[in-house]
């Protein structure tokens, strides 16, 4: 059918507006003097359109388009997830065997195993440890140590860290292998009079300044009551998890009020023994991860 025939089709309905230059009927739409020609679409366009419709109909069946329909190949995103997880596990297994045979020192010496430990440890840390220690392991004043710094209560070697994670701290409900220590409540249990605790507070808060405090009134009280665990110089003792009182880092806060409270009625944190929740490889990954946060010791 030619353009002219087409323009005659609607002739009996209303008088068509014919464009003078091309001789084609217009749609009657006009913008700023420009009129839209009513040229027919090419026929192949129709075939392409129909092909797309058929493809769309097929696509609805091929894919899981509504809840009860699983698609032709029984496709679901859950399945896709499971498949890609299986692939990842297969890739991990290539390392895992070597990893589980290796000691912590061997892992630290092998760049490949080390990086594998970091990748795993990073993910596991955020799932299990971040709740208390923070996503960046920055800790929290009030009993949750910052794991980035160089101050360690129970030791900063990778084996020490592993032991802490493995058996926990004061997790006596699960295991007696756990790290245990307790500080006496000097005030609440009437071990020291209030004035002595105040003197002691003043003494402890000055320890980190590094000056000679032997003349201080608190010196004698400290040596009699605290030095057993915290050491004569107040630098702590890792065998019993006694914090270093001569540095800049305070587990429960370094203001006088906070120090007074820690002596008067101390609080002691608890960390679960993770070996009851995580497997051996994961524990090793975590130990390596925490060790490399910045404070790890050799």
């Amino acid at each position: 059918m030619s353009k002219k025939d087409h323009s005659q089709l609607h002739q009996h309905e209303h008088a068509p507006d014919i464009d003078k230059v091309s001789g084609v009927e217009t749609t009657g739409h006009e913008w700023d003097g420009l009129k839209e020609l009513n040229n027919p679409l090419p026929r192949w366009w129709l075939w392409v359109f129909l092909a797309c419709c058929i493809w769309a109909a097929w696509f609805v069946f091929q894919r899981p388009m509504w809840p009860t329909h699983r698609g032709v190949e029984n496709y679901t995103q859950f399945k896709e997830l499971a498949e890609s997880q299986a692939q990842i596990r297969a890739r991990q297994n290539a390392y895992l065997e070597r990893f589980s045979d290796a000691s912590l020192d061997e892992i630290m010496a092998d760049a490949e195993l080390y990086n594998f430990a970091l990748a795993g440890g990073n993910a596991v840390f955020k799932e299990n440890c971040a709740t208390c220690h923070g996503t960046g392991a920055e800790g929290n004043i009030g009993g949750y140590p910052n794991l980035n710094d160089d101050d360690w209560l129970w030791g900063g070697k990778v084996t020490d860290i592993y032991q802490t994670i493995h058996s926990g701290i004061r997790d006596t409900a699960h295991t007696m292998e756990t790290r245990i220590s307790a500080m006496p409540a000097f005030g609440v249990d009437n071990i020291l009079p209030r004035e002595d605790i105040q003197t002691l507070t003043d003494f402890v808060s000055k320890l980190h300044e590094g000056e000679d405090l032997t003349a201080h009134a608190g010196y004698k009280i400290f040596q009699e009551n605290c030095a057993t665990c915290h050491g004569a110089d107040g630098k702590g003792g890792r065998e019993v998890g006694a914090p270093n009182l001569a540095d800049e880092i305070w587990l429960f806060g370094g203001s006088r009020e906070q120090i007074f409270r820690s002596i008067y009625n101390p609080r002691m944190g608890m960390m679960p023994a993770w070996r009851y929740r995580l497997d051996e490889n994961t524990l090793k990954q975590l130990a390596v991860y925490v060790h490399q946060l910045g404070g790890g010791e050799k």
Binding site: E138, N146, N148, D150, D151, N244, E248, I249
Partner: peptide
């Protein structure tokens, strides 16, 4: 995260 870390000294 963390932006900075305070060390023992």
């Amino acid at each position: 995260n963390p932006l900075f870390v305070k060390l023992s000294n």
